[in-house]
């Protein structure tokens, strides 16, 4: 709790340096027209960033006539308020939400763990610079690859070369729908493509760790594996928070792999974004109320994670 306070203080210091000086002017600051203008601009920008979400929210709570007859950003008036869209959207999406969680959570945890171990190995390795740089460059480039470039091979791989349906027989015996084969494929794919970013995020963290501490552990007789288990892993908790949050958002939000690996929107294993991408479109036109409700429901988990851990989220982005 003290950390944000400290930060605010230092900001105050700087504003003192740039705008005024000394203590008295600081009191006066509140009546400063410059600052008043600044806050007005900041609030205006807030309106801009929240407008689409606000419009979506109020629209989702209106009847179909309400959507057409009232302003898109005004709250529903009496008689046009309806939760029908939310109920309908939830009905359609609940299966997808569960499926998304089923593959996004394990994929996030596994790719974060693999990334952490790999980054540790790379940090420990005392290689010649050009080899290490080449190696790391492969990981960094792996983050930025447009997935289109691997799409056809990945589809071929899962459909013709790695038929895992047979391996999952115990699941089918338990009564799980066979469509879930696709979800397992999607999970493994998400793990594989999440590894580069996870590795690089952990690597940037481990690079700043006290090397003497690792060396001390080596001299204390610990093997590389023991050092990871007893020293590095316990000290990685803050970075795990960052990576897990970032990676979860990425995997949950991704449409492309879901689109090509899951048979169809109507599949039992369809994740939420896939269902959402086809929601509200029908013969008689668009049902915006339903679409907005669906969008909000799909976004809720990531928004919740984001609001709870916004610090970690922005750290993950800035690295």
């Amino acid at each position: 709790m003290t950390k944000p306070d400290l930060k605010d203080d230092s900001n105050d210091e700087r504003s003192k340096g740039t705008a005024d000086g000394g203590r008295l002017p600081r009191l006066r600051k509140r009546f400063d027209y410059h600052r008043l203008g600044l806050y007005a601009v900041l609030l205006g920008i807030v309106a801009f960033y929240l407008a689409p979400i606000e419009a979506g929210l109020v629209t989702s709570l209106k009847t179909r006539t309400g959507v057409i007859e009232t302003l898109p950003m005004s709250p529903p008036i009496y008689g046009e308020f309806s939760t029908a869209s939310w109920i309908a959207a939830f009905d359609t999406l609940s299966r997808g939400l569960l499926n998304s969680a089923l593959y996004a959570v394990p994929a996030t945890v596994i790719s974060a763990f693999i990334g952490s171990v790999a980054a540790y190995g790379l940090t420990q390795a005392n290689w010649k610079r050009r080899y290490k740089a080449t190696f790391l460059a492969l990981f960094v480039a792996g983050i930025f690859i447009p997935y289109q470039a691997v799409l056809v091979p990945v589809t071929r791989f899962w459909s013709n070369y790695a038929q895992i349906e047979g391996l999952l027989t115990p699941l089918w015996l338990l009564g799980v729908d066979r469509d879930y084969t696709d979800l397992v494929e999607l999970m493994i794919t998400s793990i594989a493509y999440g590894i580069p970013i996870c590795t690089i995020l952990f690597r940037s963290y481990y690079k700043n760790m006290n090397i003497e501490m690792i060396e001390a552990a080596r001299l204390d007789g610990a093997s590389l594996r023991r050092i990871y288990r007893r020293i590095v892993l316990p000290l990685s908790t803050p970075m795990f928070a960052v990576v897990l949050i970032y990676q979860f958002t990425q995997i949950w939000n991704d449409l492309l792999f879901a689109l090509v690996l899951i048979q169809s929107t109507s599949s039992d294993a369809a994740p939420a974004v896939l269902i959402l991408s086809g929601l509200g479109v029908s013969q008689e036109g668009m049902n915006f109320s339903l679409q907005m409700a669906g969008a909000l429901i799909t976004a809720l988990p990531t928004i919740a994670v984001y609001v709870m851990f916004s610090e970690e989220f922005s750290e993950g982005l800035a690295t």
Binding site: N210, M213, E215, A216, A217, L219, D220, I231, P234, L235
Partner: peptide, 12 residues
């Protein structure tokens, strides 16, 4: 055994 300049204690 080695004593380091930064002490290199395990912080956790």
């Amino acid at each position: 055994a080695m004593v380091f300049q930064s002490y290199a204690l395990y912080p956790h």
